[in-house]
Amino acid sequence: MFRLSNNLIGILNILTFLLSIPILWAGIWLSKHGASECEKFLDKPVIILGVFLMVVSLAGLIGSCCKVSWLLWVYLLVMFLLIVVLFCFTIFAFVVTNKGAGRVLSDKGYKEYRLGDYSNWLQKRVNSTSNWNKIRSCLADSKVCSSFSSKYLNDTAEKFYSEHLSSVQSGCCKPSNDCGFTYVGPTNWTGSGTTSTNPDCTTWSNDPNVLCYDCQSCKAGLLDQVKTDWKKVAIINIVFLIVLVIVYSIGCCAFRNSRRDNAYGKYP
């Protein structure tokens, strides 16, 4: 009879193989039917993930069920590397997101965001012209500001100032509070000859295709969202790492069993 560890590895890899099928299908679908470049940007990583999971699960399944020691060795090596990569990414994610937060305005329901408050590594990513052009295009494709405008279209100035806006809405879809512009609509503001040194005041435009997409506040608002998302991912990674370590330990037992059985030339 197969040992328990071999059976568990076999079952886990069957589940992983089944999971890889919809992931691979989703990547192929995105590459053919993605509505925008932002959606199509995800197709290659998703396809690679799907193929990776499929190959690794097959190696673990065949290695454990057929007691092929070298396949189990490859499987364990990949698992070990994956654990190391996830561990390093989790630490990195916590380090680069430990700085930065929205600044509370005493008479506003929303916060404002300053690029200099965030980590240098994140700042360099969004200050890269090529990177930001792609991000800007994705923000426009997502219609984050057009939906923002529709949602708050009937707000009076007092009502709008009390709204709790997302970091991207606050940073990209309206001018900075420093500018002192007069509210006309969510994405329509009248300049008042401000003397503010904030460069975003001259960057802002009522043109719905421009708005504050090129403002420092927009980059900061995006980074605040990235910071929140990365922290969530890092917490999920911790749970995933614990699961991987358990699976890796079971795999080591299965590998030991396979080597012992191959050495004796018979099942235990």
Rank of each mutant, 00 (worst) to 15 (best):
K174N: 07
K111E: 15
S176Q: 11
L165H: 11
I91Q: 03
Y118T: 03
L115Y: 05
Y161K: 14
L115A: 04
E163S: 13
L49T: 15
T97R: 05
F92L: 02
S176L: 11
D155E: 09
D141K: 07
V85E: 06
S146D: 05
C172H: 09
T156E: 01
K151I: 00
C173S: 04
L71H: 09
C138F: 05
L115D: 06
M54C: 15
G171Q: 03
L72H: 12
L77Y: 04
T90I: 02
K67D: 13
V104F: 12
L76F: 14
D107F: 12
L53G: 01
G100S: 04
V84S: 06
N127M: 14
G63C: 10
S119D: 15
E112G: 09
F148N: 06
G63Y: 13
N98M: 10
K159M: 10
F80V: 09
G100P: 02
Q169F: 02
M79P: 06
P175D: 00
K159F: 00
I83F: 09
K99P: 08
N131M: 02
S64I: 04
V126K: 04
V104L: 11
F80E: 09
S142K: 09
T90N: 02
L76H: 04
G63A: 14
R136F: 00
S106N: 13
N133F: 03
F89V: 08
G171D: 02
D107E: 14
F87S: 10
V74H: 07
L165W: 11
G116C: 01
F89C: 05
L77T: 12
G63P: 15
S147G: 03
V104T: 12
Y152T: 09
C138S: 04
T97E: 06
P175H: 05
